[in-house]
């Protein structure tokens, strides 16, 4: 990856000036999502369901390793 000045990427259409509204995802009932027809999200939710109640003992957050 060069340190030289890069060409600017192709311009994207500008987003609306009104603030983008974040969908309300905090109140989703994860248990009710067990029957989703979305394999990737279903697999991920199976992993994430324990995070809300279990201690963070196996959650580590250093980025430069696994």
């Amino acid at each position: 990856m060069s340190d030289s000045v890069h060409q600017a990427p192709p311009a994207r259409p500008p987003a609306p000036e009104a603030a983008a509204v974040l969908p309300d995802l905090l109140d989703l009932d994860l248990e009710s999502l067990r029957t989703l027809d979305h394999p990737v999200l279903t697999a991920l939710l199976d992993d994430l369901r324990g995070r809300g109640s279990a201690p963070r003992e196996m959650l580590w957050n250093f980025n430069s390793s696994f």
Binding site: P14, L28, L36
Partner: peptide, 19 residues
């Protein structure tokens, strides 16, 4: 967030940052 909302039937269906 937009992808998650679509997959779960929550909120707007469109990514608001991709006008």
């Amino acid at each position: 967030a937009a992808a998650l909302a679509r997959a779960t039937g929550t909120g707007p269906a469109r990514d608001p940052t991709t006008a």
